[in-house]
């Protein structure tokens, strides 16, 4: 059993991440957060790392395939002992799976073939079977899907992102429940830190840098040719 004092001290040392859409940046820097997280036991630090690797976009290289991303998530859910943390990972990836399906359908793609690895969670087969239904017949599980579909069709990317992050935030809060001074509370804090960080990036020049990064990745070797041509 881990020392509860460590978690009490850690949680008390972390500023509250509340007010998701008011904060332009996380309440403390990543450097400071990492420094505070050093008090975690090695096994907890590893579980947190696995969680972040499965969820945080910054930990997912652009070259990674869907299969590799899903495999990474499966590794995390297999190796992490805490049921609550496993459910936090599953919840977040199910939201992403729904969004992947909506985006694919909008691009005119057909339902993924059976056996194809394209998403994570309980609903991948269900979504494929109900591909042409507006909300994949998941409106009772994910009531926000209809709104997400509408925003996607209208091209309202900022409200869509807001909706997705809001749902992710609520899910983390729900899973956290009564966990206040334990490992689950720390994981919930770090996930929420990443959500605030992600939202903040939409509002500043880092979005432009990310765009540049994506462009470079997409162009590959041709990016240099363009630069040379430009010069």
């Amino acid at each position: 059993m881990s020392d509860p004092n460590v978690y009490i001290m850690l949680m008390a040392s972390l500023p509250s991440p509340e007010a998701l859409f008011l904060a332009k940046r996380p309440p403390l820097s990543r450097l400071k957060l990492d420094r505070r997280l050093r008090v975690l036991r090695p096994e907890d630090a590893r579980a947190l790392k696995l969680t972040e690797q499965a969820l945080h976009w910054g930990e997912i290289p652009l070259t990674m395939t869907d299969e590799e991303i899903v495999a990474r998530a499966k590794t995390a859910t297999r190796e992490i002992e805490s049921e609550t943390v496993r459910l936090m990972i599953r919840d977040r990836l199910e939201i992403r799976t729904c969004m992947v399906a909506l985006r694919r359908r909008k691009r005119g793609e057909q339902a993924p073939a059976p056996g194809t690895v394209w998403g994570f969670g309980r609903w991948t087969s269900h979504i494929a079977r109900n591909w042409n239904e507006a909300t994949f017949r998941l409106e009772n599980v994910f009531p926000w899907l209809r709104e997400a579909d509408r925003l996607l069709k209208d091209g309202d990317s900022l409200p869509l992102q807001r909706l997705i992050l809001e749902q992710a935030w609520k899910r983390v809060d729900r899973r956290r429940g009564q966990h206040q001074y334990d490992f689950e509370a720390v994981v919930a804090y770090v996930i929420k830190w990443n959500i605030v960080d992600r939202w903040g990036r939409y509002n500043n020049e880092e979005a432009a840098e990310r765009f540049e990064e994506l462009t470079q990745a997409a162009l590959g070797e041709h990016a240099n040719l363009l630069e040379e041509g430009h010069a």
Binding site: P4, N5, I8, M9, M11, A12, S13, L14
Partner: peptide
């Protein structure tokens, strides 16, 4: 006292 002390130490960092 130990539990409250841990919280106080954490809060003093912040």
């Amino acid at each position: 006292c130990s539990l409250a002390g841990a919280a106080a130490c954490g809060a003093m960092l912040e």
